[in-house]
């Protein structure tokens, strides 16, 4: 098992990267009244057939050849469902995939959200050819980071250049602190 939800996000986004997506959406939404923490990961990658979607929740299914088990999706699904939440995958070959995990926010078994700033910073700076649309919302307050907007300004300056990388990390952290007011989620 992962120790925090942000690691599940980091892991499941690797599937989108492997699926050759060039646009990946990550949305984190906390709603204290509905008592939910909802994570949506969407991509425009190669997608899966209905048959494959059924198989990916099986820990003994993987497209890898290096090992026989595939635990990324099962971990995420189990983590959400063990809180009384839900987990769904919608996918269409050639169009992309949407993975939605809803956690019951106040459930004792819900893992902490963890370092989403670290996860998004790593994904953005480590995959310069891919665009990310990240949104983070807590009880009505929210912020969005769209790397297409950054790319338009930066031109051919890559995201992993030191100053740009620092800017992105601080941008994520400052906006996160504004949105959740430093609350431990």
């Amino acid at each position: 098992m992962m120790t925090e939800i942000s690691l599940n996000v980091l892991d499941v986004v690797q599937n989108s990267i492997c699926a050759k997506a060039d646009m990946i959406g990550v949305s984190v939404a906390v709603d204290s009244i509905r008592d939910t923490l909802e994570i949506i990961i969407s991509d425009n990658g190669c997608g899966m057939t209905e048959e494959q979607v059924k198989k990916v929740v099986d820990p003994f299914y993987t497209t890898r050849t290096t090992r026989a088990v595939g635990l990324g999706i099962p971990f995420f699904k189990y983590a959400a469902e063990s809180t009384g939440g839900s987990f769904t995958i919608c996918s269409e070959p050639g169009k992309g995939t949407v993975v939605t995990a809803v956690f019951v926010l106040s459930h004792l078994d819900r893992m902490p959200l963890g370092d989403m700033t670290g996860t998004m910073h790593m994904l953005i700076t480590g995959n310069n050819a891919i665009d990310f649309l990240y949104s983070y919302a807590v009880d009505g307050k929210s912020f969005t980071l769209d790397t297409r907007e950054f790319r338009e300004i930066l031109g051919d300056v890559p995201f992993d250049m030191f100053e740009v990388s620092c800017y992105i990390k601080e941008y994520l952290q400052e906006n996160k602190d504004y949105v959740d007011e430093g609350r431990y989620i």
């Binding site: 300004i153 300056v157 100053e163």
Partner: peptide, 14 residues
Amino acid sequence: MKTLEELKAIRERM
């Protein structure tokens, strides 16, 4: 808060 102006300035330097 970080602004897009700061990013523009980084681009100029880089």
